[in-house]
Every structure is written in C-alpha cells, then in structure tokens.
Design a protein around this nucleic acid. Structure first.
Lengths: 182, 182
DNA sequence: GTCTATAATAGGATAGAC
DNA sequence: GTCTATCCTATTATAGAC
C-alpha cells in the first residue's frame, strides 16, 4: 500500500494554481491531473464530486490559508505595521499581480451557484481583515467598513486590469494607493 | 433567399450578453446558437473562425458602442456634467452591477492571447474617457492619468465583488465613491 | 491510493440541401 | 442565409486491476 504521492495540501495548492490560471471552466480534468501528477481516477478518489468538489475543497483550503495570514497580521503591534503586513501578504499571494484571484474565477464559472456561500464568506473574511486594521488605526465602524470594502474592490479590480492589459504595474500602483488611504 | 433574421448588431449584442453571463469558456456553441436564435451553421457563416471570432467581433462591437458613449460624454459642457454622464453610462451598461464585464471574461479565457491587443485597447479607451473628464476639471496630466486608472480599477473590482457576494450595492457605493473622487 | 482502460457525453466544427 | 444531419475530438466520469 503506497503512501500518498503528495500531501493533500500540496494537491490543493496545485489545483488552486490551475483554477487561478485557467479559470474554473477553462481547467480540464486532464490539466488538473497533469498539474497534480495524479491520474484522473486518483483525483476522483480524493474528490468524488469531481471538478466542483475540487473547487470547493480548494476554496476551503484558501480560507484556512487566509485565516493564517490574517492572524499573523493581527499579531502585529500598531495599525501601520498591520496595514503593511496585510498589504505585503496580499501582494505575495497574488505574486505582485501576476496571478488572478480564485474567487473571481469561481464567481464567473458556470457552477457559480454551488460556490455562492463560501465565496461570500471568503470576500467577507478578506474585508474583515482590512476592517480590523482600520479599527486599530482608530477609524469608526462605518469608516472601517467603507475603507475595507474600498480595499477589496481595488485589489480585485487591479488584478482584472493587470490581466487585461498585461501590465502588472497597475497592481503595484494600486497597492501603493491603498497604503496611503488606509 | 430569406433575409437575415436579425441585424448583425443584434446578433452581436446577444453574443455579448452570453459571453458576459457565462464567460468565454463557459459559453457553449449550443448556448450561443440558442441565445441568438441562429443555428450553429448560421453562426459559422457569419463567424468562420468560430467562437474565438465571435468574441473578437463582439469586442469590436463593444469598442464602437463605448466610442459612442464617450463621444456623447465629451459633448457635455463642464467637468461635472461629463463626469455624471460617464458614470451614468457605465452604470447603465453594467445594469447597475448585475452584469459582469466582457473584458474581464475574455481576459480570463483560455484563448486570452488571441484577445490581447483588443483587450488592451478597450481598457485604454475606458481609461481615456475618465482621463479627459479629469483634464476638463483642471487636473494635471499625471493626476488625470492616476484618477482614471483608479476609476477603471474600481469599476472592474466592484463588478467582481458584486458578482462574488451577490450584492450589487457594492457597485452602487463604488460609483458614488468615484463621483466624489473625480 | 494509484493506475490503465473505457464508457458516455458534450463540445466545436463541417457538409450539403434548400 | 439558414437548416438538418453528421463528424471528430475533448471532456467528464467510471470500472476494475494492483
């Protein structure tokens, strides 16, 4: 009985990269198989629900990853340090604008209904992290909510424009704008 | 010899809606056929290059549509009137956040290379419209460029977040934020 | 837990009649 | 310019051996 070739988390990471790069509808099982190094049957062993379940588990994995980042951010002393850690984390996660957002890709998919709830939660978690930074900086609840929404909107938009124009500098400039605004 | 069932522009409009709703990869020929009311063979008569050519022609059609809007905006007297006309046009075009952006959907597709140049141009055209409004308002060239980029990023991001959370109010709030900033 | 092989279906695309 | 019928390939998914 051979052990698993890859840790489950590593499989989820590779699936996530595939979905991010080619989109949910664009990623085929053949591709998902190739990128993970697992045969199709092995994938179905881990994800009986097929592609949709892969995406769901990837989304849950993303939640856990972000939770880790957000906890790390919250442990910093001072609003400026938290803000910088959060922006740096976001920048690293999206590889400075070269990668698309998984949430966007799933929200655009034909199976979007299936991801509705977890997507909503993921966006809320992201906004929540920015909100807490603003509150630490002394903003009112309403101000914090507004500036957090602004941050998430700007990050998603910058990723779209960077991909559409093939120019990642938009992403860099947007992160800088957010640093000034927060 | 029967006349065309629909004007070409109406066909392009319906194709655009299909690509916007279901994405480039998500939209099948069966769907494109059903939504236009044209059989697959008829579609291939008009678009010998298949789905990719449909998207290309839809993109060109979108360019013409936006050009019309932008010209109309430029004819207004005063920066505030131009700003309001542009934002109202954007809001109407995306049906107040209910519709996704075709540019985003094509930039995310597996055939994205094929749309690279026209996509870049479309984003530039959109940014250009906002830039001209800023210049009319008396901004410097650098300020106008920055605020126009900010506007496009915010519009795209708001559409993504609205779709991802199922809440179009994000889009409304973003448009209002832009009105204040411009 | 992984593989090879295969089934079943949907997708894109074409042929040829009208 | 449009249709019906068809083709071919890719895609999702499963069966069964190891």
């Amino acid at each position: 009985m051979p052990a698993a070739l890859l840790e489950k988390d590593e499989v989820l990471e590779r699936l996530m990269r595939t979905f991010r790069d080619d989109g949910y509808d664009g990623a085929s099982l053949a591709q998902l198989s190739e990128r993970t190094g697992l045969g199709k049957s092995s994938l179905y062993h881990h994800f009986p629900g097929g592609k949709a379940e892969m995406a769901e588990q990837v989304l849950a994995h993303l939640d856990r990853t972000l939770e880790g980042l957000f906890a790390e951010v919250a442990s910093r002393k001072g609003a400026a340090a938290q803000r910088d850690a959060l922006l740096a984390g976001v920048q690293a996660f999206y590889e400075n604008g070269k990668r698309a957002c998984l949430l966007e890709r799933l929200a655009a998919s034909v199976d979007r209904e299936r991801f509705g709830r977890p997507l909503k939660n993921a966006f809320a978690a992201m906004q929540g992290a920015f909100e807490r930074v603003s509150l630490t900086a002394g903003a009112t609840a309403a101000q914090a909510r507004a500036s957090a929404e602004d941050a998430v909107v700007n990050i998603e938009g910058a990723l779209v424009v960077a991909a559409g124009t093939g120019d990642v500098r938009v992403f860099e400039r947007t992160i800088e704008r957010l640093r000034d605004r927060l």
